[in-house]
Design a binder for these strands. Structure first.
Lengths: 212, 212
DNA sequence: CTATGTTTTTCTGTATACAATTATACTCAA
DNA sequence: TTGAGTATAATTGTATACAGAAAAACATAG
């Protein structure tokens, strides 16, 4: 389908972003350009461009002698969930009002895959399909601003969600909550979509923070 | 004080960011690297690094044949204010809880300058001091996440605020609202700071959107 | 005049060279 | 051994060269 060649700079960005957000590179680690050149096998130009993007995402800071990894602290995690509690319900409300037949099918497909991998107990795939569900939700809202605000925040909690979704019971609940959200959107019930989504974000944080 | 030399890439980024957010470059405009090299008098390397950062801020998109300026539409404006209405009050609440003597002095200084320029009817300087007030507020909250979320959103409404603050009456109200917020923070009255700030953002949008 | 095929130009993506700065290692005297 | 001073390494910032792709300009046949 999508045979558009991706530039090395884009590949490097995604690679490093994933490694930082997964926790492979940890807070305080120093990434030097030459080191990245060696392990990734490309010249400094695409490396530097990727670093400028990571910098703008606040995943690294320039120290003048290497890029220092910031990563996501538990304080960051708490604040991200505070913000998502405020915004994600609104995005779902907007999505419920606007969702087309096709949008709903996309959500349905993501949810069915979650249920499939839930049955297989494949928590890694559950997480990826869970990501897709949220991303589609942001997209359907029709707002670039909501999309561009929520997507990076959601990406940044991956390391913690990974652990949380290894709990069979939480994975179960999470998928069930998605089902409720989807049903509300199918009915174009904006208020229900908002309420279910806000509650879903709250529940996710409760489990991640170990407070339930 | 701050004689730290700023790289060309940083200068180019700030230059282009300002030009896009001020409306000098408009939605749809195409920026080619060579053209930017000529008008800014630097090589492609720092230009490209600046473009990667603008891309990450969603101010431009790569078309494969030049960078297309996105700018901020009126729909974006509405969504930005919806989000700020949700978040900015929370940031103020956090700031009221945490503000040190020095923090408060910083806010006070920014506010006094607003009042000074208000008397001089210098709307451009009022706007800049207004920006500073909000930025300090985000900073005092102590949350990188709130800071990094709110600051870019606030930057993106400059073009519209510029017009709004040319209204003497709105400039007056705005500065008065800041005064209320500051007083609440001085008293460490978190609930009042939250309420005044949320109302301030609402009022700002009402005026910008011409709905009052 | 128009359509088509070809050449030329433009533009990006990447690698590399070089300068400037800063950290590191090393040498030698006390 | 320690300390100062110096040479050396490492690292970033910037400019530039070159390849490849895409668009634009052009020319030619009908």
């Amino acid at each position: 389908m999508d045979h558009k060649t991706v530039s090395l700079a884009d590949q490097v960005f995604e690679h490093l972003e994933t490694d930082i957000l997964s926790g492979k590179y940890q807070r305080g680690d120093i990434l030097t350009e030459n080191h990245l050149c060696e392990i990734l096998g490309v010249s400094r130009t695409p490396i530097r461009e990727a670093l400028r993007r990571l910098q703008q995402e606040h995943l690294i800071v320039e120290t003048g002698k290497g890029s220092q990894v910031l990563g996501i602290s538990e304080d960051d995690l708490r604040d991200i969930y505070i913000i998502r509690e405020q915004l994600e319900g609104l995005a779902a409300k907007m999505s419920a009002e606007k969702a087309s037949e096709e949008d709903i099918n996309e959500l349905k497909s993501a949810l069915e895959l979650q249920e499939f991998y839930l049955a297989k107990q494949n928590s890694e795939q559950i997480r990826l399909m869970d990501n897709r569900f949220h991303e589609i939700l942001y997209k359907i809202s029709g707002s670039h601003v909501f999309y561009n605000t929520l997507l990076p925040l959601h990406k940044k909690v991956q390391k913690y969600r990974k652990v949380s979704l290894q709990s069979q019971s939480r994975a179960n609940e999470s998928v069930a909550e998605h089902r409720e959200i989807l049903n509300a959107i199918i009915k174009h019930d904006a208020a229900a979509a908002e309420a279910f989504t806000a509650q879903h974000v709250k529940n996710a944080y409760k489990h991640i923070a170990g407070k339930d």
